[in-house]
Amino acid sequence: MSKVIKHYEYLHTIPEIGFEEVKTSAYLADQLEKAGFQTTSHVGGTTGIVGVYDSGTAGPTLALRADMDALGHVIDGVHCARHTCGHDAHSSMVLTAAEELIKEKAIQKGRLKIIFQPAEELGTGALAMIKGGAIDDVDMLLGLHIRPAEECKTGQAIPAMYYSASGTIETVIAGVPAHGARPHLGVNAIDAAVGAINAVNAIHLNPNFSYSAKATKFLCDSGVTNAIPAEAHVFWDIRAQFNSTMDELRTKVLQAIQTGAATVGAKAEAKVIKEIPAAELDEEMTAILADSIREALGDEGLLKPFSTPGGEDFFFYTREKPEIKAGFFGLGVNATPGLHHPDMHFDIEALDSGVEILKIAVKKILG
């Protein structure tokens, strides 16, 4: 059994949700220390881990980042944590690559930094690590994510994953309560919410750039069936291919919610409660990853860059420190039936390829 699979099989048994990765981070920190990294725990007051290996020779600081958290699920009526997005695989690949690079004395210049980040699924883990100083000295940054089978199969990899900007808008709509027999004396929060939803659905941006805005949660209840409800809570999921498109979409959605609710005399308070920026990738790092994939998997294993409507909080690092040269690749592992599905599974043998790609890329930069 390869070391990466050994790490993976253990981490898979201890899934922990964002900012609660206590066992996970303890294991990763212990393994990094044993490999020869100077390790710092509780980065930013969280479960985040940073390990540093200094070659002693002048050169850049390259960081490898992996997320650690599992997803929360309700399965058979029971709330539980389960690794259904592959973060245990990401941590296992980065840890194994780090161990082998040191064992092989492959770091000849600069510093190799390992970042194990909590709470990617919450969209706040990267920000916590940034606040804790994890990237203050970082010049280059690499990340990766396993891919569903329909995008990328075992034996293939994508050199640049262009994630979209994504966000969540929470809205409280205030109407006026009334008896069901006298609706003219009230303002129905349901009608107002429907007006807001229809107004958002009528938004049109430049069709050359992908975007979407849709209501995903609607809560409204007067407590009885013969009364006009006075309050509704509506949540929207918004996504855009580019950050500039997201700026326009966010502005129009917030305005549409207000005006849509106002058509029946209601007031709406809308706010963005979570937003993740779109990918900003460096061409040089993408080229290094493409060459590394080709060396590891052959020409047939190198796919084209890929754009996805999914979000990834990795790109807070480049938003907060634009001078960082970042690369992010997707690894084919035949993941089915899909990421975030409670029964997601994949070809764990493919993790060895991810380790090899990481090692080749690091050697190109620090070797």
Rank of each mutant, 00 (worst) to 15 (best):
P159S: 09
G110N: 14
L141D: 02
M68T: 11
R111K: 15
C80M: 14
D88M: 04
H83D: 12
H73P: 08
T84Q: 03
A63V: 09
L144K: 00
G132I: 11
L62H: 09
I135V: 15
A70V: 12
V94M: 03
A134T: 12
L62A: 14
L144T: 05
A160M: 05
M129S: 04
D67S: 09
A160G: 11
T154S: 15
L112G: 09
A70K: 02
G155P: 12
P159M: 05
E100A: 01
A70G: 09
P118V: 08
A157K: 08
R82M: 10
L122M: 08
E120V: 05
H79Q: 13
A63T: 09
I158H: 10
L95S: 01
I115R: 00
G143W: 01
K113T: 04
Q156Y: 07
H90G: 00
R111W: 11
I107A: 10
E151K: 12
M140C: 12
D88W: 03
L127N: 06
T61E: 15
E100D: 13
I75M: 12
A126D: 09
L127V: 15
I115P: 00
L101G: 08
I115S: 01
D67W: 10
K131G: 14
P118E: 07
G155D: 08
G86L: 09
A58P: 06
